[in-house]
Structure formats: structure tokens, C-alpha cells
């Protein structure tokens, strides 16, 4: 039982970070119709920037700077991904984000080399909660994620800019007719999503080191979380991220009990993501109308 709870604790933490990536994907998809393959790259950049900055500046400030930097990168990505009015289709945008993810990966390799990067956790000792070891870092991730998700939801509902984003998601045509520059909104959606992804890994890197090529698995996990809500609901993406995180940890934790899976059960982390995603999507697809 204790082992189970231990795994759940870790799962909730990594799941929260995935949730942020997934929420970002939902935000971009709903606002622009684009599926952002570079979402994982934003998370990796967040982690890498944080590792670089935290040696020189105080942790909190370093985190903020890292997130803002990645948000700026995100807005540039958004600008490129949206492409030319009337000429760039959503499919083309998808391929562009794929290209951008590749570009960022190779730049990361150049700048940071091929090795995992991490920085020390905020407290060295783990807390003992009823026999379960809880790293304060985990609590930090979960807490900040929750606050971020809430702030986002509030921002979208209460501020005029947020409402403009929702308007673009609800009806692009009407938003355009009203004078809202849908491409400018897309850039903001990308920036906010990038910042969210980065936030997750700024906090998670101490317990889940990043490497230059971590973006693919992060993107896939983020997408799985987003898919939980049909790429449409931020709330469900959040839940999806948590479910995914917990399920993955359970799979990895108990996998060595299943014969024949091989020594490196960790590799099957992604299989868990895929299976969960497929099951969920298949279940939802029954209620959806296909185009």
C-alpha cells in the first residue's frame, strides 16, 4: 500500500507537469485549430533555461525569467506556425510546428550537449507523511500547477483579452468579422501555452532531468492529456494529465512483476500513454461526429 501511495505521489507530480503541457495544447488547438508539436520543446527549454539561470540568480527569479523567455520563444513560434493568411492550412501548420520542434532540438543539442540536465531540489530532505516519502519539490509542482491552471481559467473568462481568445475558439469567423486579429490572438495563445509548458518543467527538472531530446516524449504525454478532454476542455486536460502521470508510474513501478516485459520497463512508459490515449479517444469517439 505504501508503495502504491509512493507511486501515486510521484505520478501526481509528473502528471501535473504533463497537464500544463496538455492545457497549452488545448489552448492552441481551440484558438487556432493547430496541433502544436513543439509543445514538448517549450517544456524542455523551460528546464534547460532554468538549469542555466539558477546558478546565477535566485530560484524564484530564475524560474520567472525562464518562463518569460520561453513565452517569448513561443510567440515567435506562433507567428511562424500561423503562416500566411489564406495560404497556410492547419495541416501545413502542423508540419511547421514539427519542423520547429526539430530545430529547437538541434539547437538545444548544440547549446547544451547530449546529457541530462538538472538542478538541486528546493529542499534536500523529503517529508515523511504517514510513511510515504514526499519530496517538497513534488508539492511545489502540484501547487504551482493548480494555481496556474486556475489563473488561466479566470483570465480566459474575466479579462477582455482572454475572452477574445475564447471568442476565436468559439467562432473564428465571427471574431474576425468583429475586427479581432485572429493571428495576433494565435501568437498570444502560443506564448501563454509555451509559458505554461515551461513552468511545468522549470519545477519538475530536479526530479525529472531533461535532455535535448526529451521533447518528443513530453509532447506525446501532453497530447495524451489534452486528448482526455477531446482537445477541447482545459479542465479535462488537467485531469487527464494527472491520470496519465499516475498510470505511468504504476506501470513502471509494477512492470517488473509482469514476466516477459524485459529489464527496461521504463521504456514502456510511453506505451502506457498510448494505450490510455487510445482507450479514451475511442471511448469519446463514439459520441463524436467524424468529419
Amino acid at each position: 500500500m505504501r508503495e502504491f501511495l509512493q507511486l501515486v505521489v510521484v505520478g501526481v507530480s509528473t502528471g501535473s507537469a504533463y497537464a500544463l503541457v496538455g492545457i497549452g495544447m488545448v489552448l492552441i488547438f481551440r484558438t487556432t485549430g493547430i496541433v502544436n508539436f513543439a509543445q514538448g520543446s517549450f517544456a524542455v527549454l523551460g528546464g534547460l533555461f532554468m538549469v542555466e539561470l539558477v546558478d546565477d540568480i535566485h530560484g524564484l527569479l530564475a524560474g520567472l525569467v525562464a518562463v518569460v523567455l520561453v513565452a517569448l520563444v513561443g510567440s515567435l513560434v506562433g507567428f511562424v506556425a500561423v503562416g500566411f493568411r489564406h495560404r497556410t492550412t492547419p495541416l501545413a501548420s502542423l508540419i511547421i510546428t514539427l519542423g520547429i520542434a526539430l530545430l529547437i532540438t538541434s539547437l538545444n543539442l548544440l547549446a547544451f550537449g547530449d546529457r541530462p540536465h538538472t538542478y538541486p531540489t528546493i529542499f534536500d530532505r523529503a517529508w515523511d507523511v504517514g510513511g510515504v516519502l514526499v519530496q517538497p519539490q513534488y508539492v511545489l509542482v502540484v501547487g504551482v500547477t493548480l494555481v496556474a491552471a486556475l489563473l488561466l481559467t479566470l483570465g480566459l473568462q474575466r479579462t477582455i483579452a482572454g475572452q477574445a481568445l475564447v471568442a476565436c475558439a468559439d467562432s473564428r469567423r465571427a471574431a474576425e468579422l468583429v475586427g479581432i486579429d485572429v493571428r495576433a490572438v494565435a501568437v498570444v495563445a502560443f506564448a501563454v501555452s509555451a509559458g505554461l509548458s515551461a513552468l511545468g518543467w522549470v519545477l519538475l527538472t530536479p526530479v525529472d532531468p531533461v535532455n535535448y531530446d526529451s521533447d518528443v516524449r513530453i509532447a506525446i504525454n501532453g497530447f495524451a492529456a489534452a486528448a482526455f478532454g477531446g482537445l477541447a476542455s482545459i479542465r479535462l486536460a488537467y485531469v487527464g494529465g494527472l491520470v496519465l502521470g499516475i498510470a505511468q508510474q504504476l506501470v513502471v513501478g509494477y512492470a517488473d512483476k509482469i514476466p516477459g516485459l524485459g529489464q527496461q520497463a521504463r521504456q514502456y512508459e510511453l506505451a502506457a500513454a498510448l494505450v490510455i490515449m487510445l482507450v479514451l479517444i475511442g471511448w469519446r469517439a463514439r459520441h463524436e461526429v467524424h468529419e
Partner: peptide, 27 residues
Amino acid sequence: PLLRLRGHYLAFATLALHLILLAAIFA
């Protein structure tokens, strides 16, 4: 099951598939 997914779902699912195969080869 895979083809019931719409475009972008399939894109990610096939990407995940590739990674899983690689993982299996390693494992």
C-alpha cells in the same frame, strides 16, 4: 483502433508507436 482517430490524433499516436517500437527493441 488507430484509424478511428482523426488526423492529429493519428499523427501523435503513430509517433508514439514509433517510440514504443524503439523502446521494445531496446528493452
